[in-house]
């Protein structure tokens, strides 16, 4: 039974990580590429780490909850690194694709 839970969680996690990387390659401009890794990869990692948590809790003596730390850390830092990267991209005036709406909303920086 636990084997099934671990397998399903692992497969979900792996697919989300893969989808995030596909988004990284497939999307046409930087701002759209940013969406894949910041969201899909984070949830994929959370799912993988939950699987690891269940696995180590059942195969080894005692409960293993320290994997939560990595999930929490990734969940906290993903928006921040995304924010830093989009700030750098705006600073370098990266081109966004033509059909992007509301480009005028970007103000020139100092």
């Amino acid at each position: 039974m636990t084997e099934w839970i671990i397998s399903i969680l692992l497969l979900i996690g792996g697919s989300f990580v893969l989808v995030g990387s596909i988004g990284l390659v497939k999307m046409p401009d930087f701002f759209m590429r940013l969406h894949g890794p910041t969201k899909a990869t984070t949830l994929g990692m959370a799912s993988l780490l939950t699987a690891a948590m269940v696995f180590f809790s059942t195969t080894q003596a005692g409960v293993s909850v320290k994997e939560i730390l990595i999930s929490l850390f990734l969940l906290l830092t993903a928006p921040i690194s995304g924010y830093m990267m989009i700030k750098a991209a705006i600073h370098h005036k990266l081109e966004s694709i033509e059909r992007t709406k509301g480009i005028d909303n970007i103000e020139d920086d100092v």
């Binding site: 497939k26 046409p28 969201k39 899909a40 949830l43 059909r99 509301g102 909303n105």
Partner: peptide, 26 residues
């Protein structure tokens, strides 16, 4: 919301890229 958001974004990423209309909103 994070879980539902991820499923939505995964569908958007795997779907056709040409139909997406990105935008900046204030």
């Amino acid at each position: 919301d994070i879980i539902t958001a991820n499923v939505q974004v995964a569908i958007l990423i795997l779907g056709p890229t040409k139909k997406l209309t990105p935008g900046f909103v204030k």
